[in-house]
Computed example of a mutant assay.
Amino acid sequence: MEVEAAIDLKQMQQSAENASQFLRSLANRDRLMLLCHLTEGEACVGDLEALTGIRQPSLSQQLGVLRREGLIEPRKQGKNVYYRIASDNVRAMLAQLYLMFCSQETGNER
């Protein structure tokens, strides 16, 4: 029984670490804005700059963080790089955040 509890504890610790890293990746206003726009579909860097008002080099820096963390995927077409959301987990979290903070139904309550 103690061995099973130790394994469960290690698994729980690893899961908590993974969740913590995921939340740290989201815990930035600019990154959240980029991800929110990407929920509408793929976009190139120029489009994201125009949509969010985030200027270079900050835009590239935040896209780099999202890419390294596996939250977005790039696709190169000619000279343009297009980005899209990389997983359903990211979409699900953004949908929940939208319901909590952005939808008309919530009235932006906290």
Rank of each mutant, 00 (worst) to 15 (best):
A92T: 08
L38H: 09
K10D: 08
V81G: 00
S20V: 08
Q56P: 01
L71H: 02
A92H: 06
V90W: 00
Q13N: 11
I54Y: 09
L59F: 04
G46Q: 14
R84W: 15
Q62A: 12
D30H: 10
A19P: 05
I85G: 00
V65K: 01
L35I: 10
I85D: 11
R91A: 12
F101V: 07
A16E: 10
H37W: 08
Q96C: 15
T52Y: 01
Q61I: 11
S103N: 12
N108C: 13
T39E: 08
M93Q: 13
E4L: 13
R29V: 15
A43E: 07
F22Y: 05
A27Y: 11
R24P: 02
Q56Y: 14
L38E: 03
E40V: 05
D47Q: 15
S25A: 12
L66Y: 05
R24V: 14
M1F: 07
Y82M: 00
N28H: 11
A5Y: 10
V65N: 03
L66V: 12
N80H: 09
Q77D: 13
E105F: 15
G107A: 04
G53L: 05
A95P: 01
A50D: 12
E49R: 08
A6E: 08
L59S: 04
P57A: 02
A43S: 09
M100S: 10
I85Y: 08
E49H: 03
L9D: 11
Q56R: 13
A95Y: 05
Y83V: 05
G78H: 03
R110I: 11
A43F: 13
D30M: 11
A27T: 15
A43D: 10
L35Y: 00
G64L: 01
G107E: 04
L66C: 05
D30R: 06
L23W: 10
I7F: 06
C102F: 10
L51H: 06
D88Q: 15
A86Y: 07
L99F: 07
Q104Y: 09
I72M: 00
S103F: 03
L48N: 06
S87L: 03
C36Q: 14
L48Y: 02
N89W: 14
F22S: 02
Q11S: 06
E2D: 09
L26H: 03
L59Y: 00
G64K: 06
L9N: 12
G41P: 04
V45N: 07
L32P: 01
Y98F: 03
C102A: 15
D8K: 10
N28L: 01
E105V: 03
Y82V: 03
Q56I: 04
R67I: 14
Q14W: 02
D8W: 10
K10Q: 10
T52W: 06
V3I: 15
A86D: 07
Q56V: 04
L35S: 00
P74K: 00
E73W: 12
